[in-house]
């Protein structure tokens, strides 16, 4: 299939049926909102129709209305600049389970593991969903960046856990 080289990010957003929400100050930053059930569709379209190959990372934000999964897709424009199409997927807080984009973009493999580790977002069809950065002794119910737990609490739990391990060894 012929790749479509867009002239502007407006064109991409129109093809994906998304509307811009930021105040249009910075031409290469383009924020759009969407919901988690459109993730696979949007990713596949961006990859196959617009030749997007670079997704920088997965940003997760814990807000009152749910988790926001933010994917900055780099869209190559016709003047060879890379625009950022920043898609904000809203995820339900009670059951944070979404489709993984790793099969489409293998580079996201550890970024999604990090999102799982830090926020507890479960990715369906992820090839290797384990915790990534937190210590081995981190209790399984703690996701450190959620807003409902304080650093003090995590610190205390980790210290207890470390002490337990030390006594076990002795």
């Amino acid at each position: 299939m012929m790749l479509n080289v867009p002239k502007s990010l407006d064109e991409v957003a129109k093809a994906l049926n998304l509307t811009r929400r930021d105040p249009k100050i910075y031409p290469r930053d383009y924020y759009v909102n969407s919901s988690s059930d459109r993730m696979l569709e949007i990713a596949a379209k961006l990859k196959n129709e617009f030749g997007v190959h670079h997704v920088s990372t997965v940003i997760v934000r814990d807000d009152e209305d749910g988790f926001h999964l933010i994917y900055p897709f780099s869209v190559i424009l016709d003047n060879s600049e890379w625009g950022k199409l920043i898609v904000d997927f809203l995820v339900d807080k009670k059951n944070p389970e979404v489709e993984s984009l790793t099969p489409e973009f293998p580079g996201l493999v550890i970024a999604e593991r990090e999102a799982y580790d830090m926020m507890g977002i479960r990715f369906k069809n992820h090839p290797d969903l384990r915790r990534l950065l937190t210590p081995d002794i981190m209790p399984s119910d703690i996701y450190p960046l959620r807003k409902d737990i304080t650093a003090e609490e995590i610190r205390r739990r980790l210290a207890e856990e470390a002490e337990k391990r030390r006594l076990d060894l002795e």
Binding site: T57, I59, R61, I70, P72, P106, V109, I110, A111
Partner: peptide, 26 residues
């Protein structure tokens, strides 16, 4: 790549950092 979100207060609401090494590990 750095991402920040403000909430109107003196402190950021969220700050996410993706270091280049992290992207090169896969």
């Amino acid at each position: 790549i750095h991402f920040v979100r403000s909430n109107g207060s003196e402190k950021p609401d969220r700050h996410k950092i993706r270091a280049p090494t992290f992207a090169n590990l896969p």
